[in-house]
């Protein structure tokens, strides 16, 4: 679950999750769906994915950097994330997706990077939430 946030030059999203694991999964899906039309993406193969950080913020940025690397470097689109409850400053999981096919997953925006600009991660009444801005 996520929504898009406005930014003059770039784009952001706010993601939620009942647990931290769900938040990290939803944040990853937000990034995927900003970059690629996901409607035809299949859960074909598993891909191991993990990240660590020196605090909560850098963990989230590094996690999304991993997702972005798969997307733009390994050319893989991922539509489901199975993540264990993150340990302090560490997240390990498995993602399900398939190699990118421009015909079936049309590109939407090239995401250049994940920024710390106005970055937020924490808990509210609905559970865990995060706000992240991407450079595009």
């Amino acid at each position: 679950m996520f929504e898009i946030l406005d930014h003059t030059a770039d784009i952001g999203f706010r993601a939620w999750g009942a647990t931290r694991a769900e938040l990290f999964a939803n944040a990853a899906l937000a990034l995927e769906s900003i970059a690629v039309d996901m409607s035809d993406a299949r859960e074909q193969e598993p891909y191991p994915i993990a990240a660590s950080g020196e605090d909560e913020e850098s963990l989230l940025v590094n996690w999304l950097n991993e997702v972005l690397y798969y997307l733009d470097g390994r050319r893989v689109v991922m539509r489901r994330f199975d993540i264990g409850e993150p340990a302090p400053f560490q997240v390990v999981g498995k993602a399900w997706g398939e190699p990118r096919d421009p015909a079936r997953h049309p590109g939407k925006l090239v995401v250049k990077g994940v920024t710390y600009h106005l970055l937020k991660i924490g808990k509210d009444a609905r559970g865990w939430f995060a706000e992240v801005y991407l450079d595009i």
């Binding site: 020196e54 850098s58 940025v61 950097n65 733009d72 470097g73 250049k112 990077g113 450079d135």
Partner: peptide
């Protein structure tokens, strides 16, 4: 393109420490 984007990402990740 992606080369420069990743260089920025890589070095930003090291800058905190």
């Amino acid at each position: 393109r992606g080369l420069g984007h990743q260089v920025c990402t890589d070095y930003l990740a090291q800058m905190g420490a």
